[in-house]
Amino acid sequence: MTEASTFTASDGETIAYYIDDFTDPWRDAPVMFLLHSAMGNSQRFYSWVPGLARHFRLIRMDTRGHGGSSVPAPSVPLTMDRMVDDVEELMGRLGIEKAHLTANSAGGYVAQNLAIRSPGKVQSLVVVGSTPGLSPDALQWLPRIKAEGLTPFLRDTIHMRFDLASTDPGMVEWFLEQTAENDEDFVTRFIGYWATQEWSGELHRIACPTLVILPGAETVGTAASYDAMKERIPDAKLLAYEHMPHNIADMMADRCVADILAFHREKFSYPKP
Rank of each mutant, 00 (worst) to 15 (best):
N113D: 00
V110C: 02
P77R: 07
K98T: 15
P74L: 05
G108R: 07
S118F: 02
V84P: 11
K121Y: 01
G133E: 14
L101K: 04
N113V: 08
D81S: 05
G129N: 06
S75Y: 09
S105L: 06
M91F: 13
T79D: 04
K121E: 06
A73K: 07
V110I: 03
T79K: 01
A111H: 00
S75L: 05
A115S: 06
G107A: 09
A103Y: 10
G129R: 04
H100A: 08
T131P: 08
D86E: 04
G129P: 02
G108H: 04
A115M: 08
H100T: 09
G92S: 15
A73F: 05
I96G: 07
V122I: 00
T79V: 12
L90F: 04
A103E: 00
I116L: 02
A115T: 04
V128N: 01
A106Y: 09
N104P: 08
V126I: 04
S130H: 01
L94P: 09
M80H: 03
G95A: 01
E89I: 10
L134E: 12
K98V: 15
V87M: 11
M91I: 14
T131F: 07
L78G: 13
T131I: 13
G95Y: 03
M80N: 10
V87D: 03
L101G: 08
E88I: 11
R117S: 13
L125T: 00
V122C: 05
G120F: 00
M80I: 11
V87T: 14
V84K: 05
G92P: 07
R82T: 05
A106D: 04
A111P: 04
A106F: 14
V110T: 02
D81P: 03
S118V: 00
L114Y: 09
E88L: 14
L78S: 12
V122F: 09
A115Q: 07
L125E: 06
L94K: 13
S75A: 12
R117T: 14
D85H: 10
E97P: 03
Y109F: 14
R93P: 11
A111N: 00
M83T: 10
G120I: 01
V122W: 00
P119Q: 04
K98Q: 14
M83I: 12
G92N: 15
L90M: 14
M80G: 07
L78T: 12
Y109M: 13
R117V: 02
Q123A: 12
G92M: 15
A73W: 09
K98C: 14
E89L: 12
S130C: 04
L94V: 04
M91E: 10
G92L: 13
M83F: 11
L94D: 11
E97Y: 03
V127Q: 00
V84S: 09
S105W: 12
M80A: 12
S124D: 04
M83A: 09
L90R: 11
D81Q: 10
Q123H: 10
R93T: 14
R93K: 15
